[in-house]
Amino acid sequence: MTLPDQQYAIVTRQVSKTFGGIKAVQGVDIAVAVGERRALIGPNGAGKSTLFNLITGEISIDEGQIHVLGRDATRFSVQRRARLGLGRTYQISQLFLELSVEQSLFLASAAGIGLGLSLLNGWRDRTEDRAWTREVAGQVGLADHLFRRVGELSHGLQRQLELGMAFAMRPRLVMLDEPAAGLSPAERQTLVALIQAMAPDITLILIEHDMDIVMQLAQRITVLHRGVVVTEGTPGEIQKNSMVQRIYLGEAHV
């Protein structure tokens, strides 16, 4: 309890989760500083997604503690963690396919402000909020697609919208779950540039398989394997680490 929580966006202590006898995450301790860009890497089944969902609250925790943005959020619901300033994206899109880009971004931004109960003012009348959604749309390269139905967008634009919805929440911490999955090399570069342009005080936690993207975005990397943190370090350190190389080649038996 002596950790100065205010300096950390995320602190986990001995976090564990078991699914039907399989220890998906086991005694994980990580601390991500405010403003840090952190990547979680590891082979399939390493427990990255489980850890991710434990932090966002979508999976309930078996053991341990999770502090989110200075608060003990171990027992907080998904909604409550979101309201602390935690925004996330999904690997498999959870987009509002029948709504427009503008409506999606509006919903993302209005979550923080509150819906308001006025029946006289429709959501379209909330000009300030709509100006903000337009700004975010510009930030993620969707300014020209504001009024299109999300379901009509290309996969690349949908990934940009995922990012935009996380940004529209005015988050203090953004968690990206494989943001570049299924994108072409050119689209990947667009996406990386959009993430790099994010305000420096926003903390970023990223799961990504593409090592080029990880190396471009992350300041520190946490390597998970079979539910355990194997090592942690700067991109340079991780690249040189022989154990990490063995894990990725499938030879390590930790």
Partner: peptide
């Protein structure tokens, strides 16, 4: 008016993806 209100839009969001709406803080 209800359908056009932010509340109505939020219902549409729930129709499309309740999981996402939770993650947004609703």
């Amino acid at each position: 008016r209800l359908v056009e209100s932010p509340f109505g839009l939020a219902l549409n969001g729930i129709r499309e993806s309740p999981r996402r709406m939770s993650a947004l803080g609703y």
